[in-house]
Design a protein around this nucleic acid. Structure first.
Lengths: 116, 116
DNA sequence: CGTGCATTAAACCTATCGGTTAAATAAATT
DNA sequence: AATTTATTTAACCGATAGGTTTAATGCACG
């Protein structure tokens, strides 16, 4: 309990950034797209109906949250998923698992029996 | 895949709200406090150094995200956790578990061997 | 070497966020 | 009935979000 209070400063900043990053549909979609493998900025922007500059900003938010890394490849920036911060978010949620164990189990079963 | 595209309208709104709600330390702390059982607005506000009105607004955000329910008890509003939306957030993260299975397992072990 | 392509930066706009203080509401107490 | 207590609403404020359009940057290629 006290541990968590002490750790809070730095961890909380991360969690703020990660959850904030996850709070926008374009950014979540981007992470989903990156799950298939690395993609360029243009490739990531293509399915969305906003400007390239807007997507570029979203990517910055994801990058600042540590959710994606960018690798310069000639004139193209190739983005790939970094899932460590997702683990942090997952970890936070998991700590509360004890308070909603029944729902958690139901969900786990549900996800288990799904088509991917 | 197409399923997710179709479900997206409503689910995404929920996820936007839930992740947004989780992106603020006071709101996450509030959920932690509620894990011990229902609490009044004043009780929830006490540990934080912002005004009661500010906490009241945070509670509204949590309520709008469906993360807490409020039960009127005389002149006091008693808040209690509703963890279904946390399951949604958990579910979203879990779908990506396959892409970071190693980290996920490491985290699971870590959480497993922890002091609560 | 100049032109095109991928991406970011800058400037700008409107809306939302997160906080404040002060007033309003509503129930409990005396 | 008057007053205290619990909470929300209102009005306000500066900062951030999320989008636009128009440069600017930087690499590639004929």
């Amino acid at each position: 309990m006290l541990n968590r209070m002490v750790e809070r400063q730095s961890d909380d900043l991360d969690l703020d950034a990660v959850f904030h990053a996850l709070a926008h549909p374009i950014r979540r979609a981007t992470l989903e797209e990156l799950a298939d493998g690395p993609k360029s900025v243009s490739e990531l922007a293509e399915p969305h109906e906003v400007s390239l500059a807007a997507v570029s900003k979203h990517l910055r938010v994801l990058e600042d949250a540590g959710l994606l890394d960018v690798e310069q490849d000639g004139r193209v920036r190739r983005c790939h998923l970094d899932s460590a911060p997702l683990s942090d978010a997952f970890g936070w949620l998991t700590r509360y698992r004890v308070f909603w164990e029944d729902r958690f189990d139901a969900l786990a079963d549900h996800l288990e029996n799904e088509d991917r």
